[in-house]
Nucleic acid binder design. Sequence first.
DNA 1: ACCTGAACACCGTTCAAGT
DNA 2: ACCTGAACACCGTTCAAGT
Lengths: 202, 202
Amino acid sequence: MGRRSIHTPDELRELIIQSATDIVEQDGLSGLSAREIAKRVNYSPGTLYNVFENLDDLLLTIEARLLDQLAHRLDDIDTTGTPQQRLCRLAEAYLTFTQDNPKLWNLLLEHRLPADREIPDWYRAKLGSLLSPLKDALTPLLDGFDTHDKEQAARTLWAGVHGITSLSTTAKLSPITNHAAGQTVGDFVTTYIAGLKNRHAD
Amino acid sequence: MGRRSIHTPDELRELIIQSATDIVEQDGLSGLSAREIAKRVNYSPGTLYNVFENLDDLLLTIEARLLDQLAHRLDDIDTTGTPQQRLCRLAEAYLTFTQDNPKLWNLLLEHRLPADREIPDWYRAKLGSLLSPLKDALTPLLDGFDTHDKEQAARTLWAGVHGITSLSTTAKLSPITNHAAGQTVGDFVTTYIAGLKNRHAD
DNA sequence: ACCTGAACACCGTTCAAGT
DNA sequence: ACCTGAACACCGTTCAAGT
């Protein structure tokens, strides 16, 4: 036993993250266990706890990577056309991303930290940065509004898109089918923007 | 052992549901276990499985009751005033309900059925009926739209409100604080309705 | 008919003991 | 320093055995 050093600490960390991600991608959160990960990376369960505090930390790492991927997808959206077009593209990209990664996205929705654990700041920052492209695209529509209202509009837009996508992937709360989600997102963004213009006109 | 018959089957069923609900209300889904329920109702764990197929079934029952409660709350909303006012009241009631029952509401979001289990029709029906008050309130705003568009608008409204409330109670995905949720819901409903009018005017 | 509780196959996490 | 694997305190679920 002891001291194998087949992998550097970083390699081992990456191996664990990758295996855990694979498991969630295949079988969802319920298929994940420390023992199963250990089996796949060919280390004992105890070794996981040299690398991560616990499973929650490992999962938070996986979730953060997923947020990063989404952020990149949103950054790559082209910024031509009207604000409406841009916002629709962003919303669509968000929806497509969740549909491309259903099991991993569900992880984000299902996995809760224990009540006594705070969400780390670096994680919160990632969330915040997802709003930036939305804010940018909204700006031309909102020159009559103050900063607070702009932030608010971006959050509302985010929440709406999130609501539709999460409802479409969960089914337990939803009269929205996965298939119709695209239409619903489109309806939402278009109508909400039309409403902003209305308010602006007042 | 065996055959105590202190409680009728119905009483026992109710007892189990009540204890499980208490546990979730106190400690959330993660605090729940068959053994803990059994301890509280003073029966052995095995007895639970005479009454329910498994824990998922018990949880589905609890969730259905929660949906019923919410439906009643929405039915009791007064129907006076403009459509906007009615819709705002409905959205606010939804939000308030989730904030009044945070742990139980979270159960609805966290608890997933195993992949091989379909959501039962009676459960789906309850979901559908939650949309009715929304549709009723929307109708006056949508006489230029066909049935499909009305359904669509109701679903979008539902999804938006759901998105905001669920983001505000989860924190893991959310730049929206619990405190600001009311404002966000109000912003959303008002702006979305303004957008509908705009579309109508086209 | 109804209920028990041991049993089975799992968990997450810790930590003394090994190299 | 790094890793093991037994151990602890749990799980959900089943089912022979009891009354």
